[in-house]
C-alpha cells in the first residue's frame, strides 16, 4: 500500500496498464475527505495537531470475495481506485506475483530513483568548510 500511495499517478497508471483488470465491485466508491496530520513537540515529544490534508479512499471486492483498500493523499479518485484494486490483486497467489512484478517492483525502483536524484542534488549543496590561516606565527 505504501508504494501505491507514494507513487505519482502517471507512474501508477502506466505500470498498471500492463495488468489484466479482474472484474470487481466497488465496495466503497472513491471518496475524498480529510485526515488531521500531527507533529511532535521538539520533534520527538508529545503530539499536537498540525493541520489537515485531503485524502481519497476506495475499497473494491473481487469476484472471489477478496477485498482491497486504499487511502491516498490528495483528491485523485482514479489513483485511489487503482491502488485499491492492486491491493486486492496482491492478495491472490497468482495475481499477487504478477502485480508485484509489473506494478510494485517498477514503482519501487522509480521511487528509489526519484529519492536518490533529490538526495544527490541536496548533497551537492553541502558545505565543505576549510580553515583560513591568517598571519604568520613567527
Amino acid at each position: 500500500m505504501r508504494v501505491l500511495a507514494l507513487s505519482a499517478w502517471k507512474d501508477l497508471e502506466s505500470c498498471a496498464s500492463a495488468i489484466a483488470i479482474a472484474p470487481y465491485d466497488l465496495l466503497r466508491a472513491p471518496e475524498t475527505g480529510l485526515v488531521m496530520l500531527r507533529g511532535r513537540m521538539g520533534a520527538t515529544g508529545a503530539a499536537f495537531n498540525l493541520g489537515e490534508a485531503t485524502v481519497t479512499r476506495c475499497a473494491v471486492r473481487l469476484r472471489d470475495g477478496t477485498e482491497g483498500h486504499a487511502y491516498v493523499l490528495g483528491r485523485n479518485a482514479a489513483h485511489a481506485r487503482l491502488a485499491a484494486l492492486c491491493d486486492a490483486l496482491l492478495q491472490g497467489p497468482d495475481t499477487g506475483a504478477a502485480v508485484t512484478a509489473t506494478v510494485i517492483a517498477p514503482l519501487e525502483a522509480k521511487l528509489h530513483a526519484t529519492h536518490l536524484a533529490a538526495s544527490t542534488k541536496a548533497a551537492a549543496t553541502k558545505v565543505d568548510f576549510f580553515t583560513m590561516v591568517r598571519g604568520e606565527d613567527d
Binding site: L34, M36, A53, S119
Partner: peptide
C-alpha cells in the same frame, strides 16, 4: 472548502527524524 469535507480521522504523528532532507 475544508468545512465541506468529512474527516476520516487523525494521522500518526509525523516522524521528522526520518525526513528525506532537502535542506
Amino acid at each position: 472548502t475544508r468545512t465541506t469535507l468529512a474527516r476520516f480521522g487523525y494521522a500518526e504523528p509525523l516522524d521528522t527524524q526520518s525526513m528525506r532532507v532537502k535542506r
